[in-house]
Structures are given as structure tokens and as C-alpha cells.
Design a protein around this nucleic acid. Structure first.
Lengths: 123, 123
DNA sequence: GGCCTTCACAAGTAAATACTTGTGAAAGGA
DNA sequence: TCCTTTCACAAGTATTTACTTGTGAAGGCC
């Protein structure tokens, strides 16, 4: 059996899976992730990139945070957010379960794009 | 820029991505996919596996079908459904974009589990 | 102290979602 | 032909979602 990240009872992390997939199923939230994918950013700067209100973006951030996709670090009055890639485990597990062949293709794609990098796994 | 599956204007298939992720973000629908993952099944038999009404399951099937995750084949009064793994492309692309390291791990996992299988990609 | 800035909490609203019951179309068997 | 099976369409409802405006708490600067 694969993943089983959380410590919840029941089956293999269905609650997590739900939260993560639903969090990702919104273009605004995916854009937020893109913004802070490698750069840590304060909430205000994230909000500036959208036509939404500051509060709306804050709510999106909350959804992402509850799904485990965002980490928060307070610095004075500001709150800096960064992406938590580990939370994508349920998505990976789902792909692995539903479409194992995709992994073979991905493997080849990765080998083509990142020729011979070794053990670059962070965290 | 990765995938870009569809032929739409705008960015990289956001509409598809939304539909697929939202379709997957429901445990009932994921169970439906598990049921027909390798076996083709008529709607009625799918419905029997749930405590929901036949109509509710039919609605879930419609959602999955609209997301491209299910294919329909009519045979007499019955409608047989099968899983369309290609529709998971947006999910794969998302993983690739957001978590490239995961692919490295998957690659290793696949190599461990399927020692030296070659080009087993169906479709 | 007062006054900014940064940001989330609260409440309200329109639309979407996940169901229910009721019904009828499509196909096959008597 | 009528009758049954299989299944989606229709309409109604409760809950959730994606936003809005209003507000107040937390911290830094004068």
C-alpha cells in the first residue's frame, strides 16, 4: 500500500485528499501557489497580484493553509507565506493509484529535462 | 510552460484542470473510478456499491464524464462506463509544475516496484 | 500616548454543489 | 401490444463556496 500520510483513522487519508484537491481546484489558488512557489511572500503582496479584494485573497490563503499547502511565518505585522510541497502527497498517491503509466512517462520526461541530478530531494 | 493539452485560448488548460480536480475532490467519485478502473461496468452495478440513490450516482457519473474521466458505451438499455486515464494529464502537469522533486521520488519508486519493464504505455 | 500599516475575523449574498423524489424515454421480452 | 428493466432528465432543498463590505486586533513609528 502506498502513502497514508496523515494519522487519521479510517482509510488512506480521504479527508486530506478532499481538502487538497478542492484547494487546488481553483485558478486563483493555483496562482497563489505559483507566486510563492520558490519565493516567500507577505499576504499583501500576494493580494496585489489579483483584482480581488485583500480579504478574498486572505480567504483563499486560509483554504490553502487548511489543506496544508501553505506555511505561515509571522514577522512583525506581516505574515509571510511559503509553499509546502509535502501536502501534494495525496495527489501523487492518487496519480500513482489511478494512472501508474503516467509515472513511467514522467520518469522519462524528468530524465530528459534534468539529465543526471542526484538526490536533490529537499525535505 | 509544461503540458498545454487543450486547444483553447488563454493559459494552459485552466478549465480542464478545474473540472478534473473538482471531479476528483469527492470520495464517492473516486470510489466510482476505483470500481471501473480496469473493469468496464454498467451504471446500475456501479450504483449498487453505494448507499446513495441510483440518480445520485448517475449525477456523479455525469460529473466524471464531463471532466473527461469516464467513457460511455451503450449496449441495449445499459450504459457501460470505463475509466479514461488520459484525462488525468492536467493533474500530472500540475504535479510536475508544483512538485518536480516528487517525480524524482516516483521515478525511484517505480524503478523499485517494476524492475525493468519497458514502454508499457497503453494508449 | 496617537496614528499608521498589515491582515484576519464577521456577517451578508449569489451561485454552485450534493443530494432527494418524481417521472419518462429507450430498448428488450412476454 | 403491454410490461419490465435500465437509466438520465427535472425540480426542489439544504449545505457549501466564492465573493463582498465593515471592522478590529496586532505590531511598528512619531
Amino acid at each position: 500500500m502506498s502513502g497514508s500520510a496523515g494519522g487519521g483513522p479510517g482509510t488512506t487519508g480521504t479527508a486530506d485528499t478532499d481538502a487538497v484537491l478542492r484547494a487546488l481546484a481553483d485558478p486563483h489558488r493555483r496562482d497563489i501557489i505559483r507566486l510563492i512557489h520558490d519565493t516567500e511572500l507577505p499576504a499583501g503582496q500576494i493580494a496585489q497580484h489579483f483584482t480581488l479584494t485583500q480579504q478574498a485573497v486572505s480567504q483563499h490563503i486560509t483554504v490553502l493553509k487548511k489543506a496544508g499547502l501553505l506555511g505561515e511565518r509571522r514577522e512583525g505585522t506581516r505574515r509571510l507565506y511559503r509553499f509546502h510541497s509535502d501536502a501534494l502527497m495525496p495527489v501523487r498517491d492518487l496519480l500513482e493509484e489511478f494512472w501508474p503509466d503516467a509515472l513511467q512517462r514522467l520518469k522519462r520526461a524528468v530524465e530528459r529535462d534534468h539529465p543526471k541530478k542526484k538526490g536533490a530531494t529537499r525535505q
